[in-house]
């Protein structure tokens, strides 16, 4: 699964550099002392129980919440250069009755580069078509967003992020409750993006997925538990340390060990 050809890729430029970063909501510290790097064309999985700070970290990278210490650099710049970061929220936070078509949602990804006043033109429509193509939803372009299945909505939001041509993509638990078909479609898209040199940060509960698409793992539980290459970090001991507080029962049968030795 995890081919050992990742060595030469470390030469790729840094897409995201986080060092000693802490974040807070109002006065309440939310996440402390996080440090990791993400290179172009690679993916990092953020793993931790509910409330461990996964969403906080994503919002911190986006600059939506207050950083109290440390650095966060996107492509060597802080704050991130305009249009460099794409963000895919969870579809279930959106109003399913909102009167927009999938195409209109994806077009929102173009607004920032369009600027005020200007209306979308031919080029923007081409970008939208390409983004829909990339997630395999071209034929549903004119469907109302709320009528899509949960998985299709998630892919649609990914298309919106793609339409802006990001260098760094943040996904907030994109695989929650997806069926196999949508999951596969999403995995394929993420792999293709990586091949194009996009850096991807995914918060997830799904260790299977982490193995499929990510080189590295960041374990969170109110702070950083561990960060490093997938096989080294996902040890029984680390995962226990990460999830102990939520009382998840772990033993050698449920913990992910490299799959060829698994049960």
């Amino acid at each position: 699964m995890n081919e050992n050809d990742s060595q030469p890729r470390t030469a790729a430029p840094l897409a995201l550099h986080v060092a000693g970063a802490s974040f807070a909501y109002a006065q309440t510290p939310a996440l402390e002392d996080v440090a990791f790097d993400l290179r172009a064309g690679e993916a990092v999985a953020l793993i931790g129980p509910n409330g461990s700070g996964k969403s906080t970290l994503l919002k911190g990278v986006l600059g939506l919440i207050h950083r109290t210490a440390g650095t966060v650099e996107v492509l060597g710049e802080s704050p991130a250069p305009a249009g460099a970061v794409g963000y895919v929220p969870q579809a279930d936070e959106l109003d399913p009755e909102f009167p927009v078509t999938l195409e209109q949602v994806v077009m929102m990804g173009r607004y920032r580069s369009l600027g005020w006043l200007r209306l979308p033109g031919k080029r923007d429509r081409a970008h939208v078509a390409a983004a829909l193509e990339a997630v395999g939803l071209s034929e549903r372009a004119r469907t109302r967003f709320g009528e899509l299945s949960g998985g299709q909505q998630q892919r649609g939001l990914l298309a919106r992020a793609l339409a802006s041509g990001p260098r760094l993509l943040l996904l907030d638990e994109p695989f929650n409750g997806l069926d196999q078909e949508n999951r596969n479609a999403l995995v394929d898209t993420v792999k293709r993006l990586k091949a194009d040199g996009v850096a991807v940060l995914i918060s997830t509960h799904d260790l299977e997925l982490a193995r499929d698409v990510c080189e590295s793992v960041l374990l969170l539980n109110g702070g950083q538990v561990a960060f490093g290459p997938l096989d080294e970090v996902l040890s029984l001991e680390n995962v226990q340390r990460t999830f102990r507080s939520v009382g998840v029962e772990l033993d050698e049968h449920t913990v992910v060990v490299p799959s060829h030795t698994g049960h």
């Binding site: 279930d92 929650n176 799904d206 992910v256």
Partner: peptide
């Protein structure tokens, strides 16, 4: 700071309980 009782944004807690691996 006072722990203010507010309505949580959504009730997704249950959906996230399964760890899926």
């Amino acid at each position: 700071t006072a722990a203010l009782p507010t309505r949580p944004a959504s009730g997704r807690a249950a959906a996230r309980a399964s760890l899926g691996w």
